[in-house]
Simulated scan of single mutants.
Amino acid sequence: MYPPKPDYYSSPQPGAAMPPPPMAAAANQYYPSAPNAFAVTQGPQPWSTGLCDCTDNCGNCCMTCFCPCVTFGRIAEIVDQGATSCGTSGALYALLEYFTCCHWIYSCIYRSKMRTELNLAERPCNDCLVHCCCEACALCQEYRELQYRGFDMAIGWHANMERRAQGMAVPPVMQGGMMR
């Protein structure tokens, strides 16, 4: 029915065309020295920040504290590679929080998916335990990790891909010196 989603996280098959990865980390305002978001590495890698390292991005911590559905929606859109929108994921999260108080199970699924795709270690403990005991800190850590990987969280998946595609354009070659 639909064409398969491209996998931005694994190496391409020989001869297969692969869409460009997310925007370069150089444009990232919080982590200017971030590595390539999708570099293939051996074994689980550590998170770029700890669970409670909110000192460098207080705006996100406040937003997560007062409206975690926005933070979760942004994370889910990037992790789903644009398959679900920020608004849809955030609204579902808010409904689960309001009616069942089991919203942390939904966000735990996305943490596990993100960890698998980015090859991150399951630290400091099991994903479900992290979200059950410290939901806000877990969401902030995931948000920071995606920023560290070069995503501008406020613009969503599709705009990040457009930015990346524009950044890969090759400028024209200019001749050096003055010519007549």
Rank of each mutant, 00 (worst) to 15 (best):
V40F: 02
T41C: 06
G43N: 15
P46W: 11
W47K: 14
W47N: 13
G50D: 09
L51T: 15
C52E: 13
D53F: 03
C54L: 12
C54D: 12
T55W: 11
D56P: 04
D56S: 15
N57A: 11
N57K: 06
C58E: 10
G59P: 06
M63Q: 09
M63T: 13
T64A: 15
C69K: 06
C69D: 13
R74S: 06
I75H: 02
E77W: 02
D80Y: 00
D80R: 00
D80N: 04
Q81F: 01
A83W: 00
C86Y: 08
C86I: 14
G87C: 15
G87Y: 11
T88A: 15
G90I: 12
L92A: 13
Y93E: 12
A94D: 13
L96Q: 13
T100A: 08
C101A: 09
C102N: 06
H103V: 04
Y106T: 14
S107K: 07
Y110G: 00
Y110D: 03
S112N: 11
M114Q: 12
R115V: 02
T116W: 06
N119C: 08
A121D: 08
P124T: 08
P124L: 07
C125A: 07
D127M: 02
L129M: 12
V130C: 05
H131R: 04
C132Y: 11
C132N: 10
C134N: 06
A136Y: 05
A138F: 03
L139S: 01
L139C: 01
R149G: 05
R149N: 08
G150R: 03
G150Q: 06
F151N: 01
D152S: 10
D152M: 08
M153N: 06
A154Y: 10
I155K: 04
W157C: 01
